[in-house]
């Protein structure tokens, strides 16, 4: 402390690396997994497979993006899968059953999803109810409403849907499907919101220390409700995208997706307790999830449930890593 220029050991580069250790670890695991899979399976190392990682997991990715913002604040939203299911069947019913133009159906779905998220956020914030309980109730509510719309899946036959399904962006080595484009666009927006607006930084500040955030004069209540609203909106977008990809709406769409989404966010280096995280990490987490799925598919011998176990183990490993980093910091 004698010298006033304070530089912890190791210098700037090392420290930045250390501060982003969860993110760096995630990137390392992704590269390692991809390398191993490419070595094991012919044809894994191709542009098409890489692009499909995005396209095949776009629905999950969208839901995870919104959830990332909620987890930034130290909250949790378990309803993302159910909301996606509800909007997917709602959109299908409105377009196929009522003959609505897709844009109108999408707008209604988006509005309902966002409003639903805001309502849950409002309850959590104003009545100090536990987030997991309210969003669990949200799972029941949204899933039940989805089956209220229709108990069976409804297919959508609309020229716009056909056009979107055939929309590809040529990229040289591969063609980017519409779903991947939508995901990347949403990622860019979420990245801007999360890392380049006061709102996004406030979310992290709330998760880091809510009391401090209040004392600093940040709009804590508003930001938290907005985070849940955005999460609901993202889940609605995920449901809409699901109808585009499959050409149908299904009330059972996204069952269990909330767990995958949480895993993706946490593997992406975002602290479940809040306060630390990256939107970019969620992309990395999503790609890890995708590589595991794709590798299991390529292999054919290992059954799909291994993905759940591997994801669970990764979740455990990351939570323990975060725990370890946190306790070391306190000891220091």
């Amino acid at each position: 402390m004698g010298a006033r220029a304070v530089e912890p050991e190791g210098g700037r580069g090392v420290r930045i690396l250390r501060q982003n250790l969860p993110l760096v670890t995630t990137a390392g695991i992704l590269i390692a997994l991809y390398a191993v899979a490419s070595f094991l399976y012919d044809g894994f190392l191709s542009g098409r497979v890489a692009v499909n990682l995005l396209g095949d997991n776009a629905v999950l990715g969208l839901a995870a993006l919104g959830l990332t913002l909620v987890i930034f604040t130290g909250g949790i939203d378990l309803s993302v899968g159910a909301v996606a299911g509800f909007t997917s069947i709602l959109v299908a019913a409105l377009i196929s059953g009522r003959g609505w133009p897709p844009a109108a159906a999408w707008a209604v779905a988006l509005l309902l999803g966002t409003g639903f998220g805001a309502a849950m956020g409002g309850l959590i914030q104003s009545c100090r109810l536990p987030a997991f309980l309210i969003t669990l109730a949200g799972v029941f509510f949204a899933r039940g409403m989805a089956f209220q719309v229709s108990t069976d899946s409804v297919s959508i036959d609309h020229p716009l849907y056909t056009r979107l399904a055939e929309l590809y962006l040529p990229l040289g080595v591969a063609e980017l499907p519409f779903a991947a484009m939508a995901l990347l666009a949403a990622l860019a927006v979420a990245w801007l919101v999360g890392h380049h607006t006061r709102f996004g930084r406030n979310l992290l500040a709330i998760g880091g220390n809510e009391q401090s955030a209040v004392l600093m004069g940040l709009p804590v209540g508003r930001a938290k409700v907005a985070a849940y609203a955005l999460s609901g909106g993202c889940a609605a977008l995920a449901g809409i995208l699901a109808t585009v990809i499959t050409g149908s709406g299904d009330p059972a769409r996204g069952v269990g997706m909330e767990l995958d989404a949480i895993a993706v966010v946490v593997i992406g280096g975002t602290l479940l307790a809040g306060g630390r995280g990256h939107v970019a990490g969620t992309l990395l987490g999503l790609l890890i999830f995708g590589v595991i799925q794709a590798a299991l598919l390529f292999d054919g011998r290992l059954s799909s449930w291994w993905s759940r176990i591997v994801v669970g183990l990764l979740l455990l490993a990351f939570i323990l890593l975060q725990r370890f980093l946190a306790s070391r910091k306190r000891a220091a």
């Binding site: 930084r201 406030n202 992290l204 998760g207 880091g208 220390n209 955030a213 600093m216 630390r276 910091k329």
Partner: peptide, 20 residues
């Protein structure tokens, strides 16, 4: 200290007043 330990020094000083 009523700051946010998980954010950078610069952010902690400027939170809520970041130039935009």
């Amino acid at each position: 200290v009523n700051l946010v330990p998980t954010l950078s020094v610069a952010e902690n000083i400027m939170l809520g007043r970041q130039p935009r």
